[in-house]
């Protein structure tokens, strides 16, 4: 039961970007999401509009931007969680492997089964550790070799060693960071293709944050990851591609827009838009 996070250096500076392996070439990659002129309205207010970019397979795509710029609203469109918000109206298109997520006949339940999500605050169910992971597969009819599946998911979330002796204990007995990794295990247990992470580390301490970031690098092999974060350093550390969202203010309205989307290295070292540069340098300059 090694507490592996203790051995990890938590002092990761943005300088690291420069030393990172070269950014992969998006052209060679398969497109998972093709977002076309996406807009979201809540009643009369427009939260985001005109978002247009591609998200590639087996990469980590970060969505960054100031608070209120519609990052979370955007990511919740990718697995139709916004359907649950009364009055939310989605315009434009999101093609998932060419299939319109909001097309007629598309079942949001089926969408969410393929596109998993991890939330800002760890939200384990008030069940045992085992049942937290096993519940999804059980409900979805993946009952075969359930124990193995649970173990695989917990290993995938780098939690197995810490909890293997107390699987029947309540999930609420875990620490915040462990709870969040349990939520990741819960999400990957049903073998989605995409994992959406909505500020997954914002409620965690630095050590737990580091272990989540480490984990994301490992998950990239099997999943496509999209992460929303307000922490630019985090985006710089984990993401291959970065989308910068900003607020457009006009006529008393504030609307989130996509300013720039590029390889992370480019966004942080040589952005093409002035607003991106202001943001990237302004906060930590």
């Amino acid at each position: 039961m090694g507490n592996r996070s203790d051995t990890i250096s938590i002092d990761v500076a943005p300088v690291e970007i420069a030393q990172r392996r070269h950014a992969p070439l998006p052209e060679n990659r398969e497109v998972v999401f093709d977002v076309q002129d996406l807009g979201v309205r809540y009643g009369a207010t427009t939260a985001v509009s005109g978002v247009d970019f591609d998200i590639y397979r087996n990469m980590i795509t970060a969505v960054i931007g100031p608070s209120g710029c519609g990052k979370s609203t955007f990511i919740r469109c990718l697995n139709r969680m916004n359907d649950l918000v009364p009055g939310a109206q989605v315009d434009g298109k999101i093609l998932y492997h060419g299939e319109d997520l909001y097309g007629s006949g598309v079942d949001p339940v089926e969408v969410r089964r393929r596109i998993g999500m991890v939330f800002q605050r760890p939200n384990p169910f008030p069940k045992s550790i085992y049942d937290n992971v096993a519940w999804g597969p059980r409900v979805l009819g993946m009952r075969k070799d359930l124990d193995e599946r649970v173990e695989r998911a917990l290993r995938g979330a780098a939690l197995w060693e810490e909890v293997k002796d107390r699987l029947k204990r309540s999930a609420l007995s875990l620490s915040g960071g462990q709870q969040q990794r349990l939520c990741i295990a819960r999400a990957i247990a049903i073998e989605p293709e995409v994992l959406l992470l909505d500020e997954p580390a914002s409620a965690l301490d630095p050590i737990a944050t580091t272990s989540i970031e480490e984990l994301m690098h490992g998950l990239k092999r099997d999943f496509t990851l999209v992460i929303v974060t307000h922490n630019m350093q985090q985006a710089a550390r984990v993401a291959d591609m970065t989308a910068f969202f900003s607020l457009e203010v006009g006529e008393g309205r504030r609307t989130g827009v996509l300013v720039e989307y590029d390889a992370t290295e480019k966004i942080f070292t040589n952005p093409s838009d002035q607003r991106t540069e202001d943001y990237v340098t302004g906060r930590f300059g």
């Binding site: 969410r112 393929r114 939200n123 169910f125 519940w135």
Partner: peptide, 19 residues
């Protein structure tokens, strides 16, 4: 957020309620 956590796993509303 518990209920959202359940729905994000691709469960139906009824499965969320039951589970």
């Amino acid at each position: 957020d518990l209920e959202e956590g359940a729905l994000a796993l691709g469960t139906t509303r009824w499965e969320m309620i039951r589970g």
